[in-house]
Amino acid sequence: MNYLNEERLDVLASRYVVGQMKGQARSRFRTLMQTYQKVRERVWYWERLLSPMNDSIPPRQPDDAVWAAIEQRLWPDAAISTTLAANDEPSVTSPRWQILLPVAASLLLGVLLIAQINRDPAAVPMVTEVAVIQSDNQPLWLVEMTATQMTVRATQQVEQRNDADYELWIVPADGTAPVSLGLIPESGSLTRDRLAALDTLQIAALAVSREQPGGSVTGLPGEVLFTAQLTTL
């Protein structure tokens, strides 16, 4: 099929912008956008054409916490010290982490299981799943899921990159396209709402990819660096 036929391209671009494409078709079209300027321009045309529809949507005020979360993710150096002090969480440079860093992932998982058992269930949301993303037996990120939230903690082993971001993905067991769980921090920790996809998909693994700053623009992972199993506690 010639996707660059004018009429065909117009139909595909309009479907993409309106939101009619999904799954593999959406991924394939994003690849075409990356490859062909003509495809991008046709998408921009439809975005401009339909944008007045957005003007009829009443504005709504988001919670102030959204901006605080954006600041913390973009500029953790400025925001993380006050956040950690306020939350009284352990610093990534604390002795406990220095001890844990060289420990293999299996041992860390064991520590987590014990910690989970010892937690006061009334005080702390119950962790339901956990994954340790590692490289050469060195833990890089710890992923903890509760019923409502996902927390990703970076260790000091994570390579700091100015030219790239790390993005976390669900790899579905049915072979369909990976689903993004968002960017993950190079240092400190990040907590966000649990995505419903975690409950609706059969998960084969979690994966971390290297992406351009800001994350994947194609909806698919770039270079996959690490994978890990998600363990149900």
Binding site: V66, I70, P213
Partner: peptide, 13 residues
């Protein structure tokens, strides 16, 4: 709010 947060991160980058 989660979508908004992700979107502004991408807008910045």
């Amino acid at each position: 709010e989660d979508a908004l947060q992700e979107a502004y991160i991408r807008i910045w980058h």
